[in-house]
Amino acid sequence: MQKSFLIILIVAIVGAFVLFQFAPTLPAYIAFVAGVIVTSLIFKLVPETSSSHATEEQYVGPTMTLYVGNLPYRVHEGEVKVLFGEFGPVNSVRLVRDRKTGRRKGFGFVEMSESGAQKAMVKLNDYSFQERTLKVREAKTQDSEAADRTGTDE
Score class of each variant (00 low, 15 high):
Met1Pro: 01
Ser4Ala: 10
Ser4His: 01
Phe5Pro: 00
Leu6Arg: 07
Ile7Asn: 07
Ile7Thr: 10
Leu9Tyr: 04
Leu9His: 02
Ile10Tyr: 05
Val11Ile: 11
Ala12Asn: 04
Gly15Cys: 12
Gly15His: 07
Gly15Gln: 01
Ala16Thr: 00
Phe17Pro: 00
Phe17Gln: 08
Ala23Met: 07
Pro24Glu: 11
Pro24Ile: 02
Pro24Tyr: 05
Thr25Asp: 15
Thr25Ile: 06
Pro27Trp: 08
Pro27Ile: 08
Ala28Phe: 15
Tyr29Ala: 06
Ile30Ser: 11
Ala31Pro: 00
Ala31Leu: 06
Phe32Thr: 06
Ala34Gln: 11
Gly35Trp: 10
Val36His: 07
Ile37Cys: 13
Val38Leu: 14
Val38Lys: 09
Leu41Pro: 01
Ile42Pro: 00
Phe43Tyr: 14
Phe43Cys: 08
Phe43Asn: 13
Thr49Gly: 07
Ser50Gly: 10
Ser50Phe: 12
Ser50Cys: 10
Ser52Trp: 11
His53Ile: 09
His53Asp: 11
Glu56Arg: 15
Val60His: 14
Pro62Leu: 11
Thr63Arg: 02
Thr63Phe: 01
Thr63Ala: 05
Tyr67Asp: 00
Tyr67Ser: 03
Tyr67Cys: 01
Asn70Arg: 06
Leu71Ser: 02
Pro72Arg: 06
Pro72Gln: 06
Pro72Lys: 06
Pro72Ala: 09
Pro72His: 05
Arg74Cys: 03
Val75Asp: 03
Val75Phe: 02
Val75Thr: 10
Glu77Asn: 11
Glu77Gln: 12
Gly78Ala: 13
Glu79Asp: 12
Val80Tyr: 13
Val80Met: 15
Lys81Asp: 11
Lys81Ile: 05
Val82Met: 13
Val82His: 10
Val82Asn: 09
Leu83Pro: 02
Leu83Cys: 05
Glu86Pro: 01
Glu86Gly: 11
Phe87Trp: 15
Phe87Ala: 15
Pro89Arg: 15
Asn91Met: 09
Arg94Tyr: 05
Arg94Ala: 07
Leu95Phe: 09
Arg97Pro: 00
Asp98Thr: 09
Lys100Ile: 08
Gly102Asn: 14
Lys105Trp: 01
Lys105Tyr: 00
Lys105Cys: 00
Phe107Glu: 02
Gly108Arg: 06
Phe109Lys: 03
Val110Ile: 04
Glu111Arg: 04
Ser113Val: 07
Ser113Arg: 03
Ala117Val: 02
Gln118Trp: 03
Met121Leu: 04
Lys123Gly: 02
Asp126Trp: 02
Gln130Pro: 00
Glu131Thr: 04
Leu134Phe: 08
Leu134Trp: 04
Lys135Phe: 07
Lys135Asp: 03
Ala139Cys: 09
Thr141Tyr: 12
Asp143Leu: 14
Asp143Ile: 07
Ser144Trp: 08
Ala146Gly: 04
Ala146Arg: 15
Asp148Phe: 13
Asp148Pro: 00
Arg149His: 10
Thr150Lys: 15
Gly151Thr: 08
Thr152Gln: 13
Thr152Asp: 12
Asp153Ala: 10
Asp153Glu: 13
Glu154Trp: 12
